[in-house]
């Protein structure tokens, strides 16, 4: 059974964040039908976090577009590099969604996908310099993302900082 109003943070009226949007679902405050005392929720993406989400979305679009072209036109030239392009595109798309989505599971998905990107850009970036013949064809991560102004290298770091600072909180 839901306990009565538990903490001052979950007052039914005001949302503490200064965004002009109405609460999206019953999750914003802990007074919804599904609330128990001490329920853990993710804060809504606000402030500079929204810019992060947009940059992620643009990168996801770029990676998706590139891999679409590579796979439809010249897949057999470099199956490894191009499959990797496709995987990275999917990971960027999932990471973008995971940054925004509210559930606790999505928070973990965000960590997993962003860690994967970090690993990907470091491993593929290093390999593309040490063993250039493996990656004769460009991917988002070649030479640490030089084709994308090193955004693929910087973005996971910013993403991790943002996730660490915006942990799910007790509502």
């Amino acid at each position: 059974m839901p306990s009565t109003t538990d903490t001052p943070a979950s007052s039914p009226s005001g949302e503490p964040r200064p965004s002009g949007e109405p609460p999206a679902s019953g999750q914003t405050n802990a007074v919804g039908a599904s609330s128990r005392s001490g329920k853990i929720v993710r804060p809504r993406v606000a402030g500079v976090g929204r810019v992060l989400v947009v940059v992620y979305a643009i990168l996801a679009l770029g990676a998706f577009g590139r891999s679409l072209v590579q796979i439809t036109e010249q897949y057999n030239d470099a199956p490894v590099a191009y499959s990797l392009s496709a995987v990275s595109a999917v990971v960027y798309i999932v990471a973008t969604i995971a940054l925004v989505a509210r559930g606790l599971v999505w928070y973990r998905v965000a960590w997993v996908t962003i860690s994967f990107e970090m690993l990907g850009v470091l491993v593929v970036g290093t390999l593309s310099i040490v063993q250039p013949e493996l990656f004769a064809h460009a991917t988002v991560w070649s030479i640490y993302g030089i084709g994308y102004f090193f955004v693929p290298l910087v973005l996971p770091i910013l993403g991790m900082i943002w996730l660490a600072k915006n942990k799910p909180v007790k509502a």
């Binding site: 200064p18 965004s19 002009g20 949007e21 606000a46 402030g47 500079v48 929204r50 810019v51 947009v54 940059v55 643009i58 679009l61 770029g62 577009g65």
Partner: peptide, 27 residues
């Protein structure tokens, strides 16, 4: 993609009236 991008950013800016939307337009 290019045609979609500023349109999407402007749409965003009309919904979310915060200064970060202006940054989004710039990006």
């Amino acid at each position: 993609s290019a045609l979609l991008l500023p349109a999407a950013a402007a749409f965003w800016a009309l919904i979310d009236r915060s200064r970060w939307s202006t940054v989004v337009l710039g990006v």
